[in-house]
């Protein structure tokens, strides 16, 4: 969970990408004014569902499940039913944090690759176009 109130002053660019589509798609449009061409910007609206339904995605999800530490999940989700008795105690407990973060990374790819990672600084990868804009 990240609450990142925008810094109104100070010119921080950290939040720019999170409000980019507002600046581009929202706001007042007056027909007496002309708008500059926004060629190349529309790619921001890629439908992520296209990405989700692919064999690669399925395999990544399966891999992530394979590495998922269901025991630790019990703390996170109190409602987790204890349906399947013998959770591979050895397996689950044996998984290291390293394995988990590996899994998280895998799913992170399987999910929306465009996910904003502003906290990591310059590692955003929303779209190629976005990267291009970023350089300019």
């Amino acid at each position: 969970m990240t609450v990142a109130p925008a810094q109104q002053q100070g010119g921080g660019t950290g939040n720019l990408y999170d409000v980019l589509e507002l600046v581009l798609d929202r706001g007042l449009v007056i027909d007496a004014f002309v708008r500059v061409s926004l060629v190349g910007i529309e790619i921001l609206k890629i439908d992520v569902r296209v990405v989700v339904a692919s064999v690669d995605t399925y395999l990544k999800f399966a891999e992530a499940c394979n590495r998922l530490d269901l025991e630790s999940g019990r703390n996170k989700s109190p409602g987790l039913p204890d349906v399947v008795g013998q959770v591979t105690e050895s397996g689950a407990q044996g998984k290291t944090k390293g394995a988990l973060s590996g899994a998280a990374q895998t799913v992170s790819d399987a999910f929306q690759q465009a996910r904003d990672e502003s906290q990591e600084g310059g590692t955003r990868r929303r779209t190629t176009t976005r990267k291009k804009e970023e350089r300019e």
Partner: peptide, 13 residues
């Protein structure tokens, strides 16, 4: 967006 690990726990549950 979904926290990947956490949402897997949710759907498994």
């Amino acid at each position: 967006s979904h926290d990947q690990e956490a949402v897997l726990h949710v759907v498994m549950a």
